[in-house]
Each structure stands twice: as structure tokens, then as C-alpha cells.
Amino acid sequence: MNTLSKIITWKRNILASVAVLLTLIVLSFYGVYTDQFYFLKPDNYIFPILTSVHFIYLYVVWFKITEDELPDPKMRNIEYVLYAIMIVYVFKIYDSVTVLNSIHTYGEHVIPSSFKPMATLSLVLYSILPILTLYTFWLRKRYIGEYNFENYNDNLNVWH
């Protein structure tokens, strides 16, 4: 894992996570069957709202690493919420596979030529997202530290 952390540094991981999240937010409004964007469907806003927690976590990790700070209970709580959101990410992978395989079901209908590339792009990005997220958890543990709040007051350096 050390050679991987030299290739994919914590900054590159965070920037890649942001790029994947932003692309998936745009794609959450895109209809692969119709080749149109739908901004008035409330369902399309679920993923962008959930990713706000991910963005906050990425910001906290960036801040803690650059400022050389210890983990705190707020960071832990955000990470625990992100664990739950990972279930949504896994569901989105399943949903993307289902959409991509539906081309055989709707073969007699008019399907736009962009269907397969866009559905494949969504599947790839949704598959990369949990990997980047798990790697971020590992980087947090390596650079910021583990969540050990039993002796939290002993670890505080108020003169730092």
C-alpha cells in the first residue's frame, strides 16, 4: 500500500474524488434513455444532496492533513455518515448495471446512440467512487490518525 500511496497521493485522491463526484452529480440529472437533462425531477437531487457529506469529509481530511491536526468526534461522525452513504454508492453501481443491461429489453425501441457510452461512463464512475472513498479512509488513518478518544485529552497539544 506504500507504493500506491506514492503514486496516488492524498491530494490526488481528494482531487480525483471531487472530479468523480462532480461528474456524477451532472450525470444524475441526465437521462440515458432520452439523451436529455431533467432538472425538475426531485429524485435527481438525492445523489447531489448525499454527496454534500462526502465533500465535507474531503474538506475535513484536506484541512486536517495540511494543518497536522488530530481527528475529532465531528470528523468521526461525518465519516460514519459516509459509511452509510457508501450503501447508496453500491446501490448506484447495481442500478447502473441494470440500466446498461436493459438495452436488450428495450432493443425494439429507439435508443439514442449515446446510451451505451453514457451508461458505461456512469457505471465506471460509480465503481471508482467506493474505491476512492475507502482509500480516503485509509489515508485518514495513516496521515491523521485513528479515532481514539479515551485518551483524547492527553493527546491535545494546546501550545501547538
Rank of each mutant, 00 (worst) to 15 (best):
E146N: 15
S122I: 05
A84Y: 08
S122K: 10
E146A: 15
A84G: 10
L100E: 05
Y143C: 09
I131N: 07
I128N: 06
P117M: 10
L129A: 14
L82I: 05
Y135S: 00
R142D: 10
V97D: 03
I103V: 15
I103G: 14
T136M: 02
F115H: 12
I128T: 11
L134E: 02
H109I: 14
S127Q: 06
I144W: 08
L82D: 08
K116D: 01
I93R: 02
I144V: 15
V124Y: 04
I128P: 03
Y126D: 12
L139P: 02
L134T: 04
P117G: 05
I93G: 03
Y126I: 09
I93C: 04
V97N: 03
Y143Q: 11
S102E: 12
S127Y: 04
E146W: 14
V97W: 05
F137P: 00
L100T: 06
V97K: 01
Y106H: 15
P112G: 11
A84C: 09
Y89C: 08
W138K: 01
Y126C: 10
P117R: 09
L82P: 01
I128Y: 06
F91S: 11
T136V: 01
L100K: 08
H109N: 15
I131L: 14
Y89N: 10
N101R: 13
L125C: 06
I87D: 08
T133N: 05
S102Q: 12
